[in-house]
């Protein structure tokens, strides 16, 4: 049997192709070569700092309004403190951190009341705010919570933008000097996009922490598996008080949830307490709120911790206190 004669051109072509393929394979292998095994992700937050939203000129202000109507109360309380324009300058972007934790109707008082949200949005708009956003990272399904609590509709109608959290809005963050909030996903995007932050929270009973008011409300800025923090809830709230320094907080004690908190679920859990607190000191605001629940502020370890960390004072009488009656 004769062998097929060698074709020189064919041979050279083949050699060239083979050579190119070998070169390409080697180049790719070289480019992707990695001597080390993949490292464990040890976290390590990028150095993000949250701005201080406080106004140096407005420290230690507190107004206690005795009222039944939320919108009127918050308007007059702000007026007593120098008007919203003292807090929000024209062109500023304002973030309202509401409590929209549960998919529960406004009447049950488990979430920030839509009337109050709308009133504060309007005040900000009147003061010349360029944009008002409303956000929270609820416990129940976020879209449902914003819809059922009435916050979504009220805020939009008053001219605010509602930010329902998405994964991309969370960034790993560490509280300086903190022990618990280390390299933890925090709802930073709306915060970093705002010049002023206002906290809006109802007064509620809370079996684990003692009470849920303006400081506990910052829990809703945490993402991830934040439930594990309940093991040391007081220290966590203390850290939250350090993490976020709001421009002003509004604590809604027009009705307070005295029992079965923080979800409530029945009208019988609520009691009219006719009080609305506006303060630049969230610790003081919560201290007033604690009295509405018939408890002692010093019995709430998280308030003691927040005070110790310099977030405010429990002794609210020491502040520039205004008490008004709204008819």
């Amino acid at each position: 049997m004769r062998e097929t004669p060698m074709d020189r051109r064919e041979f050279i072509r083949r050699c060239t192709r083979a050579g190119l393929s070998v070169t390409a394979a080697s180049t790719l292998a070289f480019l992707f070569y990695d001597r080390k095994a993949p490292a464990m992700d040890m976290g390590g937050s990028p150095a993000i700092r949250l701005p201080d939203y406080c106004l140096a000129t407005m420290k230690n202000r507190l107004c206690i309004a005795r009222a039944t109507d939320r919108a009127a109360a918050v308007r007059q309380a702000f007026a007593a403190l120098g008007g919203m324009q003292a807090f929000v300058k024209p062109g500023e972007r304002v973030l309202l951190k509401v409590n929209a934790a549960f998919a529960s109707p406004p009447a049950l008082g488990a979430t920030s009341h839509p009337d109050l949200v709308a009133a504060v949005v309007r005040l900000c708009k009147e003061a010349g705010a360029a944009r008002v956003t409303v956000t929270d990272n609820p416990i129940n399904d976020p879209a449902t919570c914003f819809a059922l609590s009435g916050i979504d509709a009220a805020a939009r109608k008053a001219g605010a933008e509602v930010i329902v959290p998405r994964d991309s809005f969370f960034t790993r963050f560490s509280v300086k000097g903190g022990r618990l909030i280390q390299d933890w996903p925090v709802l930073l995007a709306p915060l970093l996009d705002a010049d002023r932050v206002i906290g809006l929270a109802p007064v509620k009973d809370h079996h684990r922490s003692g009470a849920s008011m303006t400081l506990k409300n910052w829990y809703g800025l945490l993402g991830g598996r934040r439930n594990i923090f309940h093991q040391d809830v007081h220290s966590l709230i203390g850290e939250l008080a350090v993490m976020i320094r709001p421009t002003v907080v509004v604590l809604d004690g027009i009705e307070s949830m005295l029992t079965n908190g923080p979800t409530g679920g029945s009208l019988s859990d609520l009691k009219p307490t006719g009080t609305l607190i506006v303060s630049t000191d969230p610790v003081a605001a919560d201290a007033v709120g604690t009295t509405l629940l018939g408890r002692q502020a010093t019995d709430l370890p998280f308030l003691v911790k927040a005070q110790k960390a310099g977030a405010g004072t429990i002794d609210y009488r020491s502040l520039d206190l205004k008490e008004i009656k709204v008819i």
Binding site: F102, I139, H206, R208, H230, Q231, D232, T263, G265, D269
Partner: peptide, 20 residues
């Protein structure tokens, strides 16, 4: 022996179906 009661906190019925 770790404090927690997240379940109690989130129980939506009134009165709560989880007591402590």
């Amino acid at each position: 022996d770790r404090p927690c009661i997240v379940c109690q906190e989130n129980c939506p019925v009134s009165p709560k179906a989880i007591v402590t």
